[in-house]
Design a binder for these strands. Structure first.
Lengths: 329, 329
DNA sequence: TTTTAGCACTGGCAAATTAAAAGTGCTAAA
DNA sequence: TTTAGCACTTTTAATTTGCCAGTGCTAAAA
């Protein structure tokens, strides 16, 4: 692609991102410094190459998915952030008594506000996270709370009804044994260590050990299931985008956003910011997902922005990169 | 209103609820056992009384808000639940190691599925709930977790960055003092008791007591803010209703559903099931909120269904009543 | 060889037109 | 009090129309 074609693609993408109208040849005469006829010729070349599309035979052009892709890969320059926005994000991180995961959530909420896209933070319990502490707190004769503290500071809690045949004191006893032997165990291995290290120990000690053992396995399984946490920002922002003006389309996308099985596929291990346009993501042909991973002090996860393919790529990428850099400081 | 008029209103409401089309006089000849002319006369009476509306001069009738209100107050009979649905809800409650609040959430999720409306569970920390236990769990030199256990079994946790000038051991010492003097204190009074009972005690004991005190107050304030919890079921169901076919309208309603300040106004103390049609609720003139409170073993809160005014009132009311009865057993 | 002016042509869009369908209100008779 | 009958109203969908933005192509200019 020659320089003029690149410039042409750039102008079309940016104009279309700005106001969602197909771009005609006359509108670009100023920018390209040549006549509309020349622009039409070049447009038709770019269309043959698959970078542009028409909405109908005599409409202006819009970028194709391939066009967007070329734009983000070869043309787009990082956008300078507006000072006010940058300051907002920085002050959140300068708040010293805010834990990193909370700071990330607040920032993504703000990014959703300034971009009008939906943001997702997908927390992930790192493989290096270990069991820090297991607490049993009796609430009454029949109810207790199991608390599980992870080495990175995450706490999970679950209320449990004590089985009829079991004495609460026996549960506490088992929890002491678990604390004695399982602290420092990576979370993923807890379940199997229960089987091989705890079960044999309690068989002789505890009367109704089967009930108690089952209860603990149950609790650990529950924890394993909601292993990673999801945070959403600007959930309803989808509804603001002109391309999602049909309720059916929005419904489809929002239902997928609610579906953890689909959302968890966003999880990223890449160090850079990656862009998934249209068919490249799980949501919709007119949706783009921009995402990157973060890692800091045992906290680990993915931050992602979800919006229309007609997205302010330069701004979103810069924002995510900026946030990532803040996190990792 | 005479019997025939009641029957007429009933048939119109139920037919419109069923398929969202205005109801004409001919369609009711069978049901009313009289000619369409007679029905037209009666319709026009009901319209003068304000129970019916026309969408345009020569359309069939639809119920007005007042018509719906009369229907739910004077005409509607509880709907018998389908056995399968009832069983689904009952089995959830028969699962003995499920805590009541989790059972409620699962049930409301199911109710959302079977009705295609949105459900909300608004947990409320009862005034009788007291502080059960305060735990400090150091994560590393600079981070710790504050755990707050409430007498009903709810657990709140917050990660805190230890201020530079403070020693973790001093925080632990303060937590011991709090545990000694504040256990059993109603949650609402904790903050003021901190001021009058804890602050004086620690002033002499703790070096940087101001920092530590501020930290704890901070944490308690955070807890107080998210005092009550919200659970949503079928968040996107709004999008399935034909009356919400304009993105703008849905956006409005969904934004309100996201806004805790608005949602918490749903909170109910009423023992019965109450219905708020159109302007009577905070959401939209075409939305109805059906809600009731529940109370069981220190767990307390509100369950609510949100849908279009054209709602299957009989079914929703019966479902909520059934769920409430299950909760209170 | 590249660029440009000019012009015929195309599809979309909005406003206007039309015809059919659904339903009402009113009148007069049962 | 109820009903049959009919004129009238509005909606809806389909069609028509003119206009507009924009294209593709051709032939001339650079």
């Amino acid at each position: 692609m020659n320089e003029r074609q690149k410039l042409l693609l750039k102008e079309i993408v940016e104009s279309y991102i700005k106001d969602a109208h197909p771009v005609g040849s006359k509108a670009l005469v100023q920018k390209l410094k040549c006549s509309s006829a020349t622009i039409r010729n070049e447009m038709s070349v770019l269309e043959d190459l698959g970078y542009l599309e028409k909405t109908h035979t005599s409409s202006g052009r819009i970028p194709s998915k391939k066009g967007y892709k070329y734009y983000v890969d070869n043309i787009m320059k990082p956008k300078e952030l507006n000072g006010e926005e940058m300051l907002k994000l920085e002050t959140i991180f300068s708040n010293t008594n805010l834990v990193i995961s909370d700071a990330i959530k607040e920032c993504m909420e703000i990014i959703s506000e300034i971009t009008n896209y939906t943001s997702i933070v997908l927390g992930k319990d790192s493989e290096y996270n270990t069991l820090k502490q297991l607490n049993i707190i009796p609430i009454d004769e029949k109810k207790l709370v199991v608390l599980l503290v992870v080495s990175n500071g995450h706490v999970e809690n679950k209320q449990v009804i004590v089985p009829d045949d079991v004495d609460v004191r026996e549960i506490v006893k088992v929890s002491e044994i678990i604390n004695k032997h399982l602290i420092g165990t990576p979370i993923k291995e807890v379940s199997s260590k229960m089987e091989f290290e705890i079960k044999p120990r309690i068989q002789t000690l505890i009367k109704e050990y089967e009930s108690v053992y089952a209860m603990f396995q149950n609790v650990f399984n529950d924890f394993a299931e909601k292993n990673s946490s999801v945070f959403y920002g600007g959930r309803t922002n989808m509804l603001k985008q002109p391309e999602f003006d049909e309720v059916d389309k929005v419904k489809n996308i929002m239902e997928k956003l609610e579906d953890y099985e689909i959302v968890k596929k966003i999880e990223s291990n890449e160090d850079g910011v990656n862009i998934y346009i249209g068919e490249e993501n799980e949501f919709d042909k007119d949706v783009t997902v921009v995402k990157t991973s973060y890692k800091a002090h045992g906290e680990e996860g993915t931050i992602a922005i979800i919006g229309p393919t007609r997205m302010e790529y330069d701004k979103v990428v810069t924002l995510l990169e900026f946030l990532k850099s803040q996190i990792e400081r």
